[in-house]
């Protein structure tokens, strides 16, 4: 390395490979001018390092932030509703709730509606698993504690689906178990819920199927349960149908 090469190295040494750095150090050992240059540059480097090093924070900085966070979490007097609202607001809220969300109406009256609800769940990106298959030895018990019904685990040994995990969810207004399966790198969603929640007659041995643009939804009865399976349609199938 010559003096010009050394100068180029000096200014871009953070972006240089180790071999070039070794050559530069070797050069400065032999060249007093470049060594002087290096010393001057190091002095500046040291000055920057001293100026930008850790600065001790004022005492109790995190504690004060914590106090602010706790104060924000507490309801303030000014924000509380007046006495009139205290009596009126709950009644109004209940009235509105009944109008907007009629709890007595069960929308699960057709295959299409159920399929739409299941497909919506399948498409959501924020529905993470609550447990993985490795973590919970008895998923049925896990769901029983949360949903109050025994979830029959469907047998997919013929279809070679691998059980990954599960979570609770809803199909419309009704609670269901959400089981995640893997089909060669593609997600298959299976929803299991009591058959009595479905308000249209289902034949025991029949498999119902609807195909959306990209997905297929299958529905079948399994004893007292209903299984709804959502999976991506095979691109080959798509092109031929």
């Amino acid at each position: 390395m010559d003096c010009n090469g050394f100068k180029r190295w000096l200014i871009s040494r953070d972006d240089c490979e180790g071999n070039l750095t070794r050559q530069a150090h070797k050069h400065r050992e032999d060249c007093p001018d470049c060594n002087q240059l290096y010393t001057a540059d190091e002095g500046l480097e040291q000055a920057f390092s001293n100026s930008m090093r850790m600065t001790p924070p004022p005492s109790g900085l995190a504690r004060r932030a914590r106090q602010r966070a706790e104060a924000e979490a507490r309801p303030t007097g000014a924000k509380r509703p007046g006495w009139l609202w205290k009596g009126f607001a709950p009644a109004l809220a209940i009235g509105l709730l009944l109008v907007v969300w009629n709890p007595w109406a069960n929308p699960l009256t057709s295959l299409e509606t159920i399929g739409n609800f299941a497909l919506a769940n399948h498409s959501r990106t924020d529905m993470t698993m609550a447990f993985t298959a490795d973590e919970i030895p008895d998923p049925q018990e896990w769901f029983y504690q949360r949903l109050n019904f025994r979830v029959a685990m469907p047998n997919f040994s013929q279809r070679q689906l691998t059980f990954l995990g599960g979570r609770e969810c809803t199909i419309g207004p009704k609670k269901a178990a959400y089981l995640y399966y893997d089909d060669n790198g593609k997600r298959v969603s299976v929803f299991v819920m009591p058959a009595r929640q479905i308000k249209f007659p289902l034949q025991a041995e029949r498999r119902y199927r609807i195909d959306a643009i990209q997905y297929s939804v299958e529905l079948w009865k399994m004893d007292a349960m209903v299984c709804i399976l959502v999976q991506e349609l095979n691109p080959d199938t798509l092109s031929t149908t």
């Binding site: 966070a69 706790e70 990106t125 529905m127 993470t128 698993m129 609550a130 447990f131 993985t132 298959a133 490795d134 973590e135 691998t162 990954l164 995990g165 995640y180 893997d182 790198g185 593609k186 997600r187």
Partner: peptide, 20 residues
């Protein structure tokens, strides 16, 4: 069990930190 690629988005989230 090795999870497939898509599962990165649906693996369980860690329990949210308590304030403490």
């Amino acid at each position: 069990m090795k999870l497939p690629g898509f599962a990165a988005k649906i693996v369980p989230r860690i329990k949210s930190l308590s304030p403490q």
